[in-house]
Design a protein around this nucleic acid. Structure first.
Lengths: 153, 153
DNA sequence: GTGGATGCAAACGTTTTGCATGCTT
DNA sequence: AAGCATGCAAAACGTTTGCATCCAC
């Protein structure tokens, strides 16, 4: 935790940005909710719990900055809001997502499933891949067992 | 062209929706611009050329309806607008996209690249895949040859 | 004291909604 | 006459921006 903050701090400094208290509070929320896929508003509300004076615009500006630095990835599951997902330590590719159309849950796949596919695409379409987004929509394992129960969000 | 309209008409009727003139005009625009990735506003402006009395809300409502019927797929490339992409005839999977970070162009890949990957995911994560979204971000073949020219959008 | 960072409120662009009107059967 | 579909305008929503203030060096 602390060393991840330290690393992000260095990354900011290397581009002459500072890790202000507001930025640190935002990063901490992201670290504490690594498994969730928080929207800017979600992050704002969580940061506000510990630092009530923070403004929504600052959260947006911080998230934008972190996206530029590739500390987080901005992703959109089609529900009209952007969500922010911390990059895993040393991950050179963006992980994939399983979105359940029943309960709305989002699970992550860390495995690099696209190695071969990317090689094919680069050769066949002369396209130099810099990043990717892969999301599967379907029914998660939890909803398969609880077929007739409502899953609260 | 005409038979594709006919098929969509039947699909609407089967769910007791009508193919009104406005809906038909919208579908025709989508068919005529199958390669593009039009936003709702884009569609609206194009429909307006031939049917100037149409309202933007109707276009939105039509696109929503077509999305429900899986005639089109709604997709978001992260620029804040939803785009609508006709499903290819008989395509059982949604095609993939190559988004160029230089010139903003969007190319399509019709090949089913994910067969093996999906099998792995379904087995390994007990997830029943209903749909997918795969987008690569990188440099398209045109921008690789024209490295120092500006490509107009 | 200078420059970046912040908080607030206003502005913005996209999408949705309410409602009165219109069309079709 | 009933019910869906439409057009318009207003509202809603997420996000960005302008600006005065603040803070760190």
């Amino acid at each position: 935790m602390e060393n991840r903050i330290e690393r992000i701090k260095k990354q900011l400094h290397s581009q002459s940005y500072k890790l202000t208290p507001q930025r640190e509070a935002t990063v901490r929320v992201l670290l504490e909710h690594e498994e969730d896929h928080l929207s800017a508003e979600d992050v704002y509300l969580l940061v506000k719990e510990k630092s009530p004076e923070i403004g929504l615009a600052t959260v947006y500006r911080t998230l934008e900055l972190l996206t530029e630095l590739k500390v987080v990835d901005k992703i959109n599951f089609g529900d009209g809001v952007s969500r922010y997902d911390l990059r895993k330590e040393g991950a050179d590719h963006f992980h994939h997502h399983l979105v359940c159309i029943e309960c709305g849950s989002v699970d992550e796949i860390q495995d690099d499933l696209l190695g071969d596919v990317e090689k094919t695409v680069e050769e066949q379409f002369s396209f130099i891949i810099k990043d990717h987004r892969l999301t599967f929509h379907g029914i998660c394992h939890r909803c398969q067992s609880n077929t007739d129960e409502e899953i609260p969000s």
